[in-house]
Computed example of a mutant assay.
Amino acid sequence: MSQSPSVYKELAWQGLWKNNAGLVQLLGLCPLLAVTASITNGLGLGLATLLVLVGSNITVSLIREYVPNEIRIPVFVMVIATFVTVIQLVMNAYLYTLYQALGIFIPLIVTNCLIIGRAEAYASKNPWHHSAFDGLMMGLGFTLVLVILGGIREILGNGTLFDGADLLLGEWAEALRIQLFSVDYPLLLAILPPGAFIVMGFIIAGKNWLDSYRAARAEQPQKQVTRARVTAQ
């Protein structure tokens, strides 16, 4: 039990930053680049993916001892497809306009390598509570990338933020819409998938730069200690 806090801390660090599905593993790029024309779309798809991740991880962890090794992958896919179907029906019933905007990418969550990868690599080998937290952190990390990418594209393309937030959060969210600047014609490069590919490259480059900067800062005290020992000798 004493190891649990460190386990959760490591899972959070891996999911949100070090092993982020969108920035490091580069999983789920098809929906990530296709539907993130706005924060609303990115947040909607991210939350759907997160719920499927948590649900499938818990279920796979609970049944892992009862599933023969030879058929584990088909069983995992069936579990994931069940949760995706539930999410799809709920969105169709209560978030129909957003469901239409996301289109085929909701059912395509079934084939997202992130989800099947976490089921195989982690949930099938660990307790359900650790698996649930792993799914939560991986889902939050993926959602964060979707929201950042959607926000940048929405600003560059339309000059707005949180446009259409009411489609996901209800009528009260209409007040969240921010008009940063007016455009006569949207910047199509930012709105279309090629723009997403370019912006994604800059985001990944920014993360890599931060990692390099942190590594360099961490090495400086060690070099100073080494020099001090040499001088003393």
Score class of each variant (00 low, 15 high):
Glu120Gly: 00
Ala93Asp: 04
Ala121Gly: 07
Ala132Tyr: 01
Ile104Lys: 12
Arg118Ser: 07
Ser124Val: 06
Pro127Gln: 10
Asn126Trp: 02
Ser131Gln: 11
Asn92Met: 06
Phe105Ser: 05
Ile104Tyr: 06
Cys113Val: 03
Leu114Thr: 07
Glu120Ser: 12
Leu108Pro: 06
Ala119Gly: 15
Gln88Gly: 05
Leu136Ile: 07
Ala123Gly: 08
Gln88Lys: 11
Leu108Val: 04
Leu89Tyr: 10
Ile115Asn: 05
Ile109Asn: 11
Ala132Leu: 11
Trp128Gln: 06
Tyr99Ala: 13
Leu102Asn: 08
Ala119Lys: 07
Gln100Glu: 14
Ile116Cys: 04
Leu108Gly: 07
Gly103Pro: 02
Ile116Trp: 02
His129Tyr: 12
Ala123Asp: 08
His129Lys: 13
Ser124Glu: 11
Arg118Asp: 03
Leu114Lys: 06
Pro127Val: 03
Asn112Phe: 02
Ser124Gly: 09
Ala101Trp: 04
Leu89Pro: 00
Ser124Phe: 08
Arg118Gly: 01
Asn112Gly: 02
Trp128Leu: 01
Gln100Ser: 13
Tyr94Gln: 11
Ile104Asp: 10
Tyr122Gln: 07
His129Met: 10
Ser124Ile: 04
Lys125Asp: 10
Gln88Ser: 11
Met91His: 09
Leu89Cys: 09
Ile87Phe: 02
Met91Asn: 12
Pro107Arg: 04
Leu136Pro: 02
Asp134Asn: 12
Asn112Trp: 05
Ile109Ala: 10
Ala123Tyr: 09
Gly135Glu: 00
Gly103Val: 04
Gln100Gly: 12
Tyr122Thr: 09
Asp134His: 05
Leu95Gly: 01
Asn126Leu: 09
Leu108Cys: 08
Leu95Glu: 09
Leu136Asp: 03
Ile87Trp: 01
